[in-house]
Design a protein around this nucleic acid. Structure first.
Length: 989
RNA sequence: GCGGGGAUUGCCGAGUGGUCAAAGGCGCUGGACUUAGGAUCCAGUUCUUAGUGAUUCGGGAGUUCAAAUCCCCCUCCCCGCACCA
């Protein structure tokens, strides 16, 4: 299916992949058998409790999810090998609408969904005859959840994740429901749940709330709720025409009311008033929490020519007919603001020129002629009548020119909203920005009972069942009041104490906290825990509340399951006792009929493991799950159990494209082992990019990781049978090699300690492979025993340090090298970088620069040198640099200053003439004032140590080392004088 | 619009004041090894040059002995803006 894939599957290295796949299976079985990763209380070690949010069990996970869990696993393994008793459990999220929606679509035989789910199932079920019946079984929502929960846990274990899989549960479990009920009891006790009305999208057919999934093409339409203001324009009879608008501030510019003459309207009685709205609007308003009685049905034309009073301005304006008025939109009545609304202007011009209509409705022509736009907003870049200007500019022909009118409306709305200022005619609102005036005018109108809320969908939409989608208002809706001042303050307090990594995401949390306000917390759709305050009414706790404090539930679920404790026994008093240390065990035990032993076990488990030391997930969850987790923790738990740390990662794309069902470019986790192999995938995922960047999974680059992994495998296997000997006096290259490996490993461990997995792999794995490559080259002439011993030492250490990323290969090599126990549990070596190591590193760098320089010259002169003379600087130059560096710490270096100081310096004052030249040279590149130097002696030693290798590199040229300033050195071209610290002069012959 | 994050050499991606012409990978070019190899190894991949110098890190202006990195302005891209998990 994928051309690039063949590269990996068909290569000569197939045996390698076959081998390591077997190894992966082998070690996963062993870990499982020995329960290596099952959490057990252990008082001899500090505990470390990791969670990665449980996945949603409505479909298979893919390599993008894998990135997140992979990072979690690397942390878990890192901590385990750093001496912690690590606890990383896993469960499944099934509440809310998705699982239910899948079941429903399968049931109604939605072909597209069937096809998708047959594909999904075929990832796991190899027997094609069984697939259809499994999908069929998804009619029952439990089967969906069970199937995918099982599949996902297998995926995870198949990736070698060091999970405790003995604590699985789903958010639909009865026991879990009890826990969520308890959570809500606490929130309610703390007055964090409030009531109010709330507009929602609603299907008139199902009589039920709908979400994006329920709407036909909902993912494309993105239907939203719009808040209209229905303004009452009173007729002389006392009845009001209710005209709906998104721009109430334009009431000052109203010139007339538009009504659709041929459409059906109703006169209705509502809250003791009489209104006229369209037939459709009548039905919508009924759902928007209004008691309505229809008094009579009327055609729109009956109102034409009548007069209404404009609220606030008290102007009398006429009602005119207009066909653009859509009775199925808001109230079906609109008022005209031709100065600022393109539709209105176009309709007005149309009407003024339409003799036929004027005649038909016997309109007062003189009055109609007199209607002129009334300007009420001044806006930069426009004159008094933006609508007129734009209509002319875009060439709007008439009110049927919808496309252009729509564009003009949008443009004006945006420009006026953000940069418009209310003019003098708007009374007390003059000078306000439109942005502010809009709400202020609406508020005033509502206060004076001149307007009402009217909700309408942003787009016309149909439910999948075929019913129309409207906006309904639910009365007495329950909200979580995240706006509660004290709650928010406490949440901020918790956030401020938390580690957020990468730190740049802290801002996103702060922003989320700031805009968080009341949030509806119950709904009628989907799976979940019944809302305890309204039992029997069919209200379900919305599913985000299922994923905020559940980490605590991991600590008790095993006791509940193992001892067959019934959901009914999980009373609030029990959780109060376990989690909040409230009440007495005796009473709780009697009350719940759970033995004191089990209660104690649960309490101890919770108190041992909590808090949840690190929660790792993708950044998409910042503005919901993660923020709510902080809020709910501070509401429910005492401060010592608040969340200490979150770490985050960006998403993963493939070959530059987002993965999506429709694109067929998804790599399911289940296919990773056979497609790539596990350790390869883990390695590549970890090293491909830093956590805060979007990862692009590209096949050609996976190939690189594969080749390095194989190389490491080969190097390591060559070392397996080596018997290490004691190296009494290691050669120069061996010393450098040891230091380099050590330094890289140390950098790697520091990096992962800082949550920087990429650098950890780059330094510890790829960096060290390069060091080994290099050693193979330079150590060719050394004794075999020395080489092999030094290499084996290094590889043994790399295996331990890199085990968190490539655990299977590491276990296998660890075993092949006859080491006892699991490398997964082996503590990292304690690495200390000594002064010697630093000197070694400096010497290595010195040599590498020297080689580059020689090569450079060889290339330029284009001949092979017989002799290479290397001139090391005289020691006084080191002294000069040192002095200059000292000066530089305080001030910019000037020649005069250097000369002055040199004159006073016993070593330097003999070389004043040379120093003048040298200083000039130094000032050209101030960065040399920062370099670390080796003494002439050490430079010389380094070169001597590599002499053999340098010579070999340049076709056995003779290497001659001279120190400038020594007597009688060979110096025909006066190169010796040019030698500088760390930069020997060269002469090639 | 508001809020957040970005813009690096052919591409992907490191790098936040000094050996940075800028890690690493991919791609490309040349060579080596090979029956062959998409494997491996070596060299090159801004221009210039006895190891030098010049110009580069979205655009512009500035601070500094020194700027991809700090300050200011501008342009463009991505993400979030709630009942969706």
């Amino acid at each position: 299916m994928d051309k690039n894939l063949c590269k990996i599957q068909g290569g000569f290295w197939m045996t390698f992949l076959d081998d390591i796949r077997k190894i992966e299976d082998k070690w996963q079985k062993k870990w499982k058998e020995d329960q290596v990763f099952v959490g057990k209380i252990n008082d001899t070690k500090p505990k470390w409790f990791l969670t990665v949010p449980y996945p949603y069990a409505s479909g298979p996970l893919h390599i993008g999810h894998c990135r997140t869990y992979n990072i979690g696993d690397i942390f878990a393994r890192y901590k385990r090998q750093s001496g912690y008793n690590v606890f990383w459990p896993m469960a499944f999220h099934i509440t809310g609408t998705p699982v239910q929606a899948v079941a429903y679509q399968i049931k109604i035989k939605n072909e597209k969904i069937w096809k998708i789910y047959e594909d999904y199932v075929s990832i796991y079920e190899k027997d094609p005859t069984k697939i259809k019946s499994i999908v069929q079984s998804f009619e029952n929502q439990e089967n969906v959840a069970n199937f995918f929960a099982n599949a996902i846990i297998k995926d995870f274990l198949g990736m070698g994740f060091s999970l405790d899989d003995t604590r699985q549960f789903t958010t639909g479990d009865k026991e879990y429901n009890k826990f969520i009920e308890w959570q809500y009891k606490i929130l309610n006790e703390k007055n964090l749940i409030t009531k109010g009305s709330y507009p929602i999208l609603w299907c008139v057919n199902d009589k039920n709330a709908v979400g994006e999934d329920d709407i036909q093409e909902g993912d494309l339409l993105k239907v939203e709720v719009n808040d209209f203001v229905g303004i009452k324009f009173r007729l002389n009879s006392g009845t009001s025409l209710v005209a709906a608008t998104l721009r109430p501030e334009t009431i000052y510019g109203a010139t007339n009311v538009w009504i659709n003459p041929d459409a059906d309207y109703n006169e209705i009685e509502i809250s003791g008033e009489k209104w006229v709205v369209s037939k459709e609007a009548t039905e919508k308003l009924k759902e928007q929490d209004h008691e309505i009685v229809v008094i009579r049905k009327i055609k729109g034309k009956e109102f034409v020519n009548q007069e209404v009073t404009v609220p606030i301005t008290k102007e009398k304006i006429p009602i005119y007919p207009a066909t653009f008025v859509d009775t199925d939109h808001a109230t079906g009545v609109v008022y005209s603001v031709p100065a600022h609304a393109p539709y209105d202007y176009a309709a007005l011009v149309d009407l003024q020129n339409d003799e036929e209509t004027i005649g038909k409705y016997t309109l007062d022509k003189e009055r109609l002629e007199k209607i002129k736009p009334i300007s009420l907003i001044s806006v930069k870049g426009y004159g008094d009548f933006p609508a007129v200007e734009l209509c002319e500019m875009l060439g709007v022909k008439n009110q049927k020119d919808k496309q252009k009118l729509e564009k003009a409306t949008q443009t004006i709305y945006k420009d006026e909203f953000y940069s418009g200022i209310m003019k003098d005619i708007t009374g007390k609102f003059k000078g306000l920005k439109v942005e502010e005036a809009k709400d202020a005018v609406a508020k005033k109108l509502k206060e004076d009972n001149l307007a009402t809320e009217v909700y309408e969908t942003s787009k016309k939409a149909l439910c999948r069942c075929g019913g129309q989608i409207i906006v309904a208002v639910l009365e007495d809706q329950y909200f979580l009041n995240y706006g509660d001042k004290k709650w928010k303050e406490t949440a901020f307090k918790a956030l401020n104490k938390m580690v957020i990594t990468p730190e740049k995401y802290r801002q996103a949390f702060e922003n989320t906290f700031n805009w968080l306000d009341k949030r509806p917390c119950v709904r009628k759709r989907g799976l979940g825990t019944e809302f305890p305050l309204t039992k029997g009414e069919g209200w379900i706790i919305e599913s985000l509340s299922d994923s905020v404090i559940y980490m605590a539930f991991y600590t008790v679920i095993r006791t509940i399951r193992e001892n067959n404790i019934k959901p009914e026994q999980l009373k609030p008093e029990l959780f109060d006792y376990i989690f909040l240390d409230k009440g007495k065990i005796k009473e709780v035990s009697q009350f719940t009929d759970i033995s004191e032993e089990y209660i104690t076990e649960m309490k101890e488990s919770f108190e041992y493991y909590y808090p949840n030391d690190l929660r790792h997930t993708a950044i998409a969850h910042i503005s919901n799950h993660l923020s709510f987790a902080i809020f709910h923790h501070v509401a429910v738990f005492p401060e010592k159990y608040w969340l200490p740390a979150f770490s985050l990662n960006e998403l993963l794309i493939r070959e530059g494209q987002k993965m999506g069902k429709s694109k067929a470019n998804v790599i399911p986790i289940a296919q990773i082992p056979e497609k790539y192999s596990v350790d390869l995938t883990r390695l590549h995922l970890a090293s491909i990019a830093t956590a805060d960047t979007v990862v692009d999974w590209r096949e050609t680059e996976v190939n690189f990781a594969l080749q390095r992994l194989r190389k490491f495998w080969e190097y390591a296997n060559r070392s397996v049978d080596v018997v290490k000997t004691e190296i009494l006096n290691p050669a120069f290259p061996s010393r450098i090699f040891r230091s380099s490996i050590k330094t890289n490993l140390q950098k790697a461990l520091t990096a992962i300690g800082d949550f920087n997995i990429r650098d950890y792999v780059l330094e510890g794995f790829y960096g060290n492979i390069r060091v080994i490559d290099e050693y193979h080259k330079i150590a060719e002439h050394l004794q075999r025993e020395e080489r092999e011993t030094v290499l084996k030492e290094a590889i043994e250490q790399i295996i331990i340090v890199m085990a968190p990323v490539i655990p299977h290969i590491s276990e296998e090599l660890h075993e092949r090298m006859q080491h006892e126990g699991y490398v997964s549990l082996k503590q990292f070596p304690n690495i200390e970088i000594t002064e010697d190591d630093k000197q070694n590193a400096l010497q290595a760098k010195f040599i590498s620069n020297l080689l580059d320089d020689i090569e450079e010259i060889v290339k330029l002169v284009k001949t092979t040198p017989q002799k290479i003379h290397i001139y090391i600087n005289a020691d006084w130059k080191n002294e000069l640099y040192r002095v200059a560096q000292e000066i530089f710490e305080d001030e910019a270096v000037k020649i005069g200053k250097i000369m002055g100081v040199a004159k006073e310096n016993k070593v330097l004052n003999k070389y004043m003439k040379e120093i003048a030249d040298e200083a000039k040279q130094m000032l050209r590149d101030p960065s040399i004032f920062r370099i670390e130097m080796l003494s002439a002696e050490k430079q010389k030693k380094a070169i001597e140590g590599y002499k053999e290798f340098i010579s070999r590199t340049f076709v056995n040229a003779e290497i001659l080392v001279h120190v400038a300033g020594d007597k009688d050195i060979y110096n025909p071209q006066k190169k010796a004088q040019k030698a500088r610290p760390m930069r020997p002069a060269l002469l090639l012959e």
